[in-house]
Amino acid sequence: MCPRELPRRLPGRGYPPLETRESIHMNSILNTMSARDRGFKRPSSTGLEGSVGIGLRSSHSERFLDANNLPPVPWLEVLAENYFGRGGINHQMLCRIAERYPISVHGVALSLGSADGIVPEHLERLASLVEDVQPRLVSEHLAWSRSGEVYYNDLLPLPLTEETLDVVSANVDQTQDRLGRTILVENPSGYLAFEQSTMSEAAFLTRLTERTGCGLLLDVNNLFISGANLGIDTAEWLSIVPTNVVGEIHLAGHEMGGTPDQPLLMDTHGAAVTPGVWALYIASLTRFGLRPTMIEWDSDVPSLEVLLEEASRAQQIMAQVSRSDPYSNRYAG
């Protein structure tokens, strides 16, 4: 539990104020959800449309506690499991940071793809974090990371079958029911495709949103990697997924790996965004509108300034897309 009631968020400095108007886009997402009428309390808007946040990393945490010199970023995303201690130093720092910045909570180990279901203790800790920081967005992955009692700390791939869709849908339902809100599910970076798969990733994710009312987190870097490694047609992916289900976009870097005979793109989250990913980002914004975007850099974390520079570049691209495409501009609010 956070030590005291969170005061109103203070406006930061040096970045455009968050829009509070209701967004046309969010209403369309909410209309989709109403088909299922899950009875969740619906936020009128995340308030993050058209803005670019960064991932909060422990090496930068203290910079966000200096009230006289707050880094200019409109929102922050945190890795949920880093704050599962039900207290302690990390948790205390996050509570303080959440007083000043809107937060997005991004889980990595709920294991939505596990055939033996969600671990109640894990979901409870996620729920108590969500209760504490009142995030604007909550997201997880189309992946599994646990089998039996063991956690593998990696986002493992799923055969995309009807059975898997049943499993993931049930796990997403359970999560959303416990949290009392919808979550976004992220497309993972792929290294393996399975012969037993009966549908494309885009089709699978689209059906998942139809069945559970969840939204999607489009990781443009992951899509780019899966395009290169698995031969997914990224343009087709963008055209299959309905525009109203994407609630957030991730940007990150990758590196070359594999062997000379079989090159693979490796999702390291430890490098600058590449030109190919920027290009796919423009296509994504053009297709889905000015979705809240986040710079994700998890390993070999550089200085905060480097992250802010990447965020500012994404913000400029957003502005360009918004100017050049009146259609996507409609979603800017």
Binding site: Y152, N153, D154, L156, P157, Y191, L192, T259, L264, M266
Partner: peptide, 21 residues
């Protein structure tokens, strides 16, 4: 029935991230 090199990416990620922890 999967390619060993590609399977190895996941095995490497799991091992190295846990070792790093």
């Amino acid at each position: 029935s999967v390619d060993s090199l590609r399977f190895g990416v996941y095995a490497h990620n799991a091992r190295s991230s846990l070792t790093k922890a």
